[in-house]
Write a protein that binds this DNA or RNA. Structure first.
Lengths: 195, 195
DNA sequence: GTCTATAGAAGGATAGAC
DNA sequence: GTCTATCCTTCTATAGAC
């Protein structure tokens, strides 16, 4: 049986990072919400906040990818799957008062110019998302290079929408993003069907 | 003659916010880099960090809008202007080691769930960008509703690209973003030409 | 309007008992 | 592995001399 304390710390930190960012989240805040003693944090993460941060970034990135993959794979086709993902993102934003958006975007921007290990962790997460989406589009018949560019575009649109929605406390930008994203997917699939 | 100390504080803060974010920038760091005494900060900004932050957000937002407007207006047409803006963004990213991206994105995500006054300031900046771009597309013949959706999409793509580029320390995502953005503009203009 | 000193809280990190 | 106490630094903010 794996130690639950470590998992609680990871879960709580992921939640706090998503809402308040890396520098905005204190270690004391983390152990308080995780009902864990302060010493346990440094026992499980001897590297301190950086080590904990890196593990949370990777973990959150993988969990979010699995969430999106589940939505996309549940749909009858890729186009519908992408549309569902954007619709779902809008619903979650409204339900959480615009707190639950991308789990690593805030942290990624914060650490980009301040911590190489953490920047690399965020870069690996985004690259894994790009690769996963690329495979989905390749599976739908899109040529590999076009599929990667499409995957990058979809993620860019989603991330940009998260930013505008959180700032405006409105889902208008996510609805627009869904239209733009599906249009891009449709165009790529049409380009393939022409062969 | 306006007081130069206040302007120096504003300029330095804008630069630090862009790179390190809101919580990642300390007031002591600001006065040190601005060569200003600590007391001057609270003399010019009695509301402390929040008041300074709000003013910097609005100021940075307006300056960045003017920068983009200059690039777009210098081009022969809107399509070329948008393409130039994305190309220019990629150049700046490379030249500044991926530090100079969107001046308010990091701050916007940090404050979205922590400070209503600052969130509103970022929301107003994004809305002003959307309106400015909307007018440009309306001027190019795009129907107003479609123009607003196009403007939102362009900003989303740019912001998503900034995020991916800073994380990866690569301009691949910005190049892809430029293609996607110009394709969207081209499609909107084509829709108009059909009338 | 400029500048110094300092308060008071919160930050990350460590030591050592259990 | 758990938990407490504590160190040192940094943070925002204020007071008050000049």
């Amino acid at each position: 049986m794996p130690t639950p304390t470590k998992d609680r710390i990871l879960d709580v930190t992921a939640e706090l990072f998503r809402r308040y960012g890396y520098t905005g989240t204190g270690l004391k805040q983390i152990v308080a919400e995780a009902n864990a003693p302060f010493g346990s944090l440094y026992h499980h993460f001897p590297g301190g906040k950086q080590e904990l941060g890196a593990e949370v970034i990777r973990r959150s990135g993988q969990m979010y990818f699995e969430l999106i993959a589940t939505i996309v794979l549940a749909a009858p086709d890729v186009l519908t799957g992408i549309a569902d993902a954007f619709t779902g993102a809008a619903v979650v934003l409204r339900e959480t008062d615009y707190a639950d958006a991308c789990p690593i975007a805030t942290v990624a921007l914060e650490v980009a110019s301040t911590s190489e290990p953490l920047r690399e962790a965020t870069a690996q997460v985004f690259e894994s998302w790009i690769r996963g989406l690329t495979e989905a589009f390749v599976g739908a018949g899109v040529e590999r290079d076009a599929a990667r560019r499409l995957a990058i575009s979809i993620i860019e649109i989603l991330e940009g929408a998260f930013l505008l929605c959180r700032a405006a406390k409105s889902t208008e930008a996510m609805e627009v993003a869904g239209e733009t994203a599906t249009a891009a997917v449709r165009a790529a699939l049409a380009g393939t069907a022409r062969d």
